[in-house]
Design a protein around this nucleic acid. Structure first.
Lengths: 141, 141
DNA sequence: CCATATTGGTTGAAAATGTAACTAACAAGG
DNA sequence: CCTTGTTAGTTACATTTTCAACCAATATGG
């Protein structure tokens, strides 16, 4: 057994460092430009990408706790980036959809995300990227 | 340009998912066993691994903000896992060292960390692991 | 139907984090 | 010395996150 086990060799730590670094970099964009929080940006993205859906669906898709989604939805609604519509069949459910303004923000941020992603990937080779994605998917469970 | 850009294709998001998943898994161990917080575990680890050092050194080594370290040190001290000694040359500096109890906790958790790391790596091939580590180091900046 | 359980979603309080201002000690230049 | 600047570390306050309790609607089983 290796006896030089350092924290940077510990996968959860290494993952966290990389996630934190890249996450904070990109946060500057959505936070600086629209004052969005991380969870808010994620909810916005899912709605923009997949169209109207319920908070429950977002939870499942994004792996977010319902309280976080609930508050993010309230914040996005207050900014008029989304609207709620009661589902007629199951009145517990609220169908969330982006407003025109919300879609504009999504379009802008999606572009930025792609751009930022490309700058990150530029530092890696094609093969590395493929392996990295596979590993991350595997580790995310 | 790909037009099917989903959040899971976005590297910061994928990294975050993997980091969160593995981090929370391992958190169960140090939290459940010793009631430690993430930052506390990291500080403990660095002291255990590298011996007595100042809070400043830990900040640099672990990439943690000084307020987080300050609070973690206070918590670890309250649990009698570490002690402070004033540096005689520069009295601003406090030399932190683990107590016997602290070292015991470190020894236990270091073993768990290695074990957990191995279970994570078991799902990946040797080559994948090497590439993964290289990518993460690169992305962590 | 009626009682009970489950589900979608919200809320309040407690815990954790981030930010900035602060203290105390050292350092450097006049 | 003495002003000014910097560094180690703490503290106070605002913002976020987490956790548990909660409400209302639906599903289930007698």
């Amino acid at each position: 057994m290796r006896d030089d086990f350092d924290l940077s060799d510990f996968l959860p730590y290494a993952l966290n460092r990389a996630a934190e670094r890249t996450g904070r970099d990109f946060e500057k964009i959505y936070k600086g430009r629209y004052g969005l929080l991380r969870t808010e940006w994620r909810v916005l993205f899912h709605l923009g990408r997949h169209g109207a859906m319920s908070a429950r669906d977002i939870c499942a898709l994004a792996g977010l706790h319902k309280t976080k989604v609930s508050r993010a939805v309230a914040a996005l609604e207050a900014r008029r980036y989304l609207t709620r519509a009661q589902d007629q069949i199951d009145r517990r459910v609220e169908l969330l959809s982006l407003t025109r303004a919300g879609r504009a923000v999504f379009a802008d941020l999606e572009g930025e995300a792609r751009r930022y992603d490309r700058t990150l990937l530029a530092a890696l080779s094609e093969g590395e990227v493929e392996t990295l994605r596979r590993c991350l998917a595997q580790l995310a469970g």
